[in-house]
Design a protein around this nucleic acid. Structure first.
Lengths: 216, 216
DNA sequence: GCATTAATAAAACGAACGTTCAATTAATTC
DNA sequence: GAATTAATTGAACGTTCGTTTTATTAATGC
C-alpha cells in the first residue's frame, strides 16, 4: 500500500507532535523509538521522516516551540505597572498556569536537554535565560524600591523557579487541589519568601478587598 | 587474554559504580551503553556482568544506595530537640549538604526513575516517601506549636524539597558561592517561606548571638 | 480525465544494543 | 607446585535502532 485515503499532511504532523510529547514525557527521548511513535500515530515509521528529518529534529522542535510559547505567554501577560510586587505576582501566576497546562512538554524541556546537539542546546538555554532574567529584574527592582527583602537575587530567582516548576512533578488535574488553589498557595509562599511588603502590593491593587492582601 | 595482572574484584566493582554514576548523570541511563561504561573502567563489557547481572540491576543498586544513604544521613543528623524550627533547620542543612555532595547520584535518582521496573520503582518511592514524611511531620508540629505559619503542609513540603534539591541544577563547587553561603541563604528563605517565628528558633539556641536570629 | 503532486507503505541498510558463552590467565589455597 | 578459584577477554547471538530507498496510491490542478 501507499497513500491512504483521507491522509492529510497537516493532520499527520499535528498527530505526530502530540504523540511525541506524550511518549517522550512518559518513556524518555532515548527510550522512545520511532517505530513506537509511528504506531501511536497509526502510521509506518518511514512516514515520520516526511515531517521531521531526524529524531533529534523532532525533539528540538518540541522544545523550541515550548520555550517560544513560554516567552510569548509572559509577554502577553506582563502587566503595565512597574510595581515589583504586582509584577512578581503576575510572573508567578503565569509561570504556574503555563507549566501546569503543559506538564508533558515542560517535563521534556527540563529532562531531555542532554539529547540536543551543542548548538541547539545553546539555543534553548538562551531562551531559558531570557525568561529567567525577567524574574531577576523584577526581584532587583523590588529590592531597590524597598518592597522586597532578598539576600541574593540570583539565588532567590533560581529557588523560586525550581519551586514553581516543581509543581508539575506532583500536580495531577482533578485531584485534591485545583489549579487556582495551588496558584494561590504558591503565590503566598513566594511573597513570604521574598519578604514582600503587603502594603506595596495592595496599594497597587486598590480595588481589591483587604482580605486578599492579608492572605499574602 | 583473560584475567589481567593486578585485577581485583572489589576494586573493579567500585570503579564500575563510580564510572556509572558519572556516565549516567552525564548521558542518561538509556543513552549510556554497557560498552561505554566498560571502556571508562578500562575493561571489556562482558566483565561488568560479573558484578551486575543486568544494566537495570546496576541502576537500581545505585539508586537504592543513594536513598539509603539519605535516610541514614538524616537519622544521624536528626537533632534531639523537639523544637520544630530547630528540626527544620537541621533538615534543610542536611538535605542541601547531602545533595550537593552527591550531585550526580541525586540527578540519577531524580531523572531515571522511569527506567526501573514497577516493583523496584515502588521500592525507591517508598524510601522517598519515608524521607518526605519527616519534613511534613516537622511542619505539622511547627504549625501545632504555633511557631510556623503554613497554609498547606503537604504542598509546602513539596515546594521546599523542590526548592532545595534544585540546588544541584545550578550549583557548581568553587564558583561564586560556597556550600556554606548557599545553605545559609536557603535556610533563611525556608524560614521566611514557612513563616517561622524568630523567637522560637533563637530560644532553642540560647547561646548564639541575636544577629543570627535576625538574619532569618 | 489526465498529469502532477502529496502522502504513505514495505522492505531493507548497517550499526549498535544488552547479554551470553567458552576459553584463558592470574591469584590463592593447601 | 599442583589444584582450585577469581577475573577477565574475545567472539558471537539475536534484537532493535534510526534512517533510506523505492514503489504505490490518493488527492489536486488544469
Amino acid at each position: 500500500m501507499a497513500r491512504t485515503t483521507g491522509s492529510d499532511g497537516e493532520k499527520t504532523e499535528a498527530a505526530v507532535r502530540e504523540a511525541a510529547v506524550s511518549l517522550i514525557a512518559r518513556l524518555g527521548y532515548e527510550a522512545m523509538s520511532m517505530r513506537q511513535l509511528a504506531a501511536e500515530v497509526g502510521v509506518q515509521a518511514a512516514a515520520l521522516y516526511r515531517y521531521f528529518p531526524t529524531k533529534e529534529d523532532l525533539l528540538f522542535t518540541l522544545m523550541r516551540e515550548h520555550m517560544e510559547g513560554l516567552l510569548e505567554a509572559w509577554n502577553n501577560t506582563r502587566p503595565a505597572t512597574n510595581n515589583p510586587v504586582a509584577r512578581l505576582a503576575a510572573y508567578v501566576e503565569n509561570h504556574i498556569a503555563f507549566h501546569i497546562e503543559r506538564r508533558h512538554a515542560t517535563h521534556i524541556s527540563n529532562m531531555e536537554l542532554r539529547s540536543l546537539s551543542h548548538e541547539r542546546l545553546t539555543q534553548i538555554l538562551k531562551m531559558r535565560t531570557t525568561y529567567e532574567k525577567e524574574l531577576r529584574a523584577i526581584l532587583r527592582d523590588g529590592v531597590e524600591a524597598g518592597v522586597l527583602e532578598i539576600e541574593d537575587v540570583g539565588l532567590t530567582a533560581m529557588a523560586l523557579i525550581q519551586m514553581m516548576t516543581g509543581v508539575i512533578v506532583w500536580f495531577r488535574p482533578g485531584e485534591r487541589l485545583s489549579i487556582t488553589e495551588v496558584t494561590t498557595t504558591y503565590l503566598s509562599m513566594t511573597m513570604r519568601l521574598v519578604g514582600a511588603k503587603i502594603d506595596a502590593y495592595s496599594a497597587a491593587r486598590p480595588f481589591e478587598r483587604a482580605k486578599d492582601a492579608v492572605a499574602l
